[in-house]
Design a protein around this nucleic acid. Sequence first.
DNA 1: ATTATATAGTTCGACATCAAATCATAGGAG
DNA 2: CTCCTATGATTTGATGTCGAACTATATAAT
Lengths: 152, 152
Amino acid sequence: MTRQAPASDADLLFRVFNEVGIIAQLSSTAFERVMPEGMTLAQFTILNHFVRLGGRKRPSDLASAFQVTRATMTSTLQRLEPKGLVQIVPDESDGRGRLVEITQAGRAMHEDCLRRLAPLLDDILAQAGRGPFAAALAPLAEIREKLDRMRD
Amino acid sequence: MTRQAPASDADLLFRVFNEVGIIAQLSSTAFERVMPEGMTLAQFTILNHFVRLGGRKRPSDLASAFQVTRATMTSTLQRLEPKGLVQIVPDESDGRGRLVEITQAGRAMHEDCLRRLAPLLDDILAQAGRGPFAAALAPLAEIREKLDRMRD
DNA sequence: ATTATATAGTTCGACATCAAATCATAGGAG
DNA sequence: CTCCTATGATTTGATGTCGAACTATATAAT
C-alpha cells in the first residue's frame, strides 16, 4: 500500500528525506496557523526551551542547541525581544557575549501556545494514532544524531 | 540511549516533529552545499519531477504535488526560467493557465546534481546504515498521508 | 607587549515559504 | 447575455534560514 520497495539505497534515502521535508512543512504551518498572531514555531521553540530548562543562555548556545546558525538566532531573538518575551543582558564575564532569559510575558505566551496546540495534537492523534509516531521516533533520532555528527 | 519514554502522547508527537524538523533542516542544507552554485533543493525537486515523469504541468499542479502554495511555486519558477532550466508557455486550452516543461539545459543540470549528490548519500549511508531509513520510511509515509488529508 | 588566531554577535544578500490581496479568465445561474 | 463565483497566477509583506563578510573582544604565541 505504501508503494513499492525502493530500487536502491540512494532511492530509500531520497524517499525518507522527501517525506521528512513534507512533514516538516505541513506540521510547522499547521502549528503556526493555531498560534497567537505573530508567533512562529522558531520563536515558540525558544520559549519552550527556557520554560523547560530555565536559566540564561548565550545566543550561540541556543543556536547550536537548535541546529541553526548564529545569524538565524540573532534574527529570531530580534523579534522576541521587542515583544518583551525574552530579555537580553550583557554577559559580565565576557565582553563579547550576551545572555538571554525568558520573561513573565514569555511564560504566559508559552502557556497560551500550549493551550492552542492541544486540540491540534488531539486531531492528529485521532487521525493517525500514536503507532506511526512511536515507530518513527527511534530511527529518526538515530538519523538526526548521525547527520548532526557529520556536520563537524 | 535515546532518552526516556515519552511522558504522554503529546510529548511523543512533539519529539517526532522536532526530530523531523531538524533532519529536514540538516539534510536540505547538506544537499545545497554540494549542489552547483545557485541551485536549491526546491529547484532541484522540480527538475527531478520532470525528469522522472516528463510532460508538461501547470504551476498549480506542481504546487499541490509538492505541498506548497501557488505563490511559492511562482517564486521558484521565476528563478528556474531565467536560467533556462524550464520553459513556460501559455496554456492554449485555458487563458488563465501556463504550462511548464523542462529544457535540455534543465536535464543536464539535473544530471550534474545527481552526480554531486551521490558521494553525499554514500557518506550518510556509511555513517548511519540503511537500517534507520528502512525503519522510518513506512511510518513517515503514513504520518505524511494523514497530515496531508487533514489539510482539505 | 605585540601579534595572530579564535570566538560572540551582527549585518547583508539571497532564497523558500506562507497568508492575504489582486487580476484575469472560466463556468454556471438566471 | 449578465452576474456571481471559482480557479490560475502573481504580487506584496513578513518570517526563517543560510553563507559570507564584518566588528569587537578574548586567548594564545612569541
